[in-house]
Write a protein that binds this DNA or RNA. Structure first.
Lengths: 163, 163
DNA sequence: CTAATCTCTCAACCAAAGTTGAGATCAAGC
DNA sequence: GCTTGATCTCAACTTTGGTTGAGAGATTAG
């Protein structure tokens, strides 16, 4: 048993991730290495695959939080098998399809609506607040969907924007 | 001539943007309202369309900086016409097509590579550092493409990740 | 045994896109 | 004329995904 575990430096070279990034991922509970007698992190081989998965998921635009949730579905009591990983990553298929569909819809709307130069806030389907092509995660979007009251605004009295 | 201009509050209600966001956009030189005698911002009708454009561009995932560059191509000496806006937004078509293509390639790679459960760092096409499905803008990606040296690593001595 | 590396923790910092609050001023209704 | 309500500026804080030191301790090579 060469059971000493992989050091963070080695793992860094293997995955291309900076040690600081790996420590950060531990902080975010994406990996949970053991510790040696001196306090050093000891990773397992399986962690290489785990980090690989994380990198791919990031590339697909998932946030750390989402990735953590996804990883939570792995069996905790044993080292994940190739099949576990396959099952997990197959979900991305659907997500990607959905994302492509969103972009295609956006493109069609663009053809139909911006294409005409109207850019009207009231009529334009582009203003559907539900789909942004951007990531779902980043920046201060924690109050997205918070559109102001629009309260005592009866008509669209003067919204037309011709000149 | 009811030439008093639109106040920031009214513009906020018209566009759904928070006043703070509009001020921020002025800060970032995306809009340049006039000022009333008391220092209040005075927007024009054309600014409604300008902000609409900004919102759409954001939705498509462009950063403020990119949007500023795009807006710079508008004629400065006169109020932009519908045609100006159409010309500008037509460029998005190509960008969207490109983005859709990237996602489709990612999806195909996913089918071929993750699908098999290998997740190998060396062989997997998913590790092409060039295309991430995420936004091009946000987060600390100013050092993306900075992959560590990989220097004195001759072979792939023990990268296989079977268990 | 000692020097050269690695690692450790912890705090501070980066960028993006804004928000939030304080304190002051402006505009408008009655 | 006065009191709301809107706006002003400016600084500080938010989130995400990390990086960059500082100072201390651990490991390893010679």
């Amino acid at each position: 048993m060469k059971s000493k575990g992989i050091t963070i430096g080695t793992l860094s070279k293997r995955t291309g991730l900076a040690p600081s990034a790996i420590r950060y991922y531990e902080d975010q509970a994406l990996v949970a290495p053991g510790r040696g007698p001196g306090g050093q992190r000891q990773f397992e081989k399986a962690d290489i695959r785990r980090l690989s998965f994380i990198m791919i998921a990031q590339k697909l635009g998932f946030s750390i939080r989402e990735i953590r949730d996804q990883l939570a579905s792995l069996p905790g009591h044993r080292t994940p098998t190739a099949k576990d990983w396959r099952t997990l990553s197959e979900r991305y298929r659907g997500e990607l399809d959905r994302r492509i569909a969103t972009l295609e819809r956006l493109r069609d709307d663009l053809d139909g609506c911006i294409g005409c130069g109207c850019l009207s806030l009231d009529k334009c389907r582009l203003y559907n607040p539900d789909d942004s092509a951007a990531r779902h995660g980043p920046g201060p979007r924690y109050l997205m969907g918070d559109r102001p009251d629009s309260g005592s605004d009866t008509g669209d009295e003067s919204v037309e924007i011709d000149e």
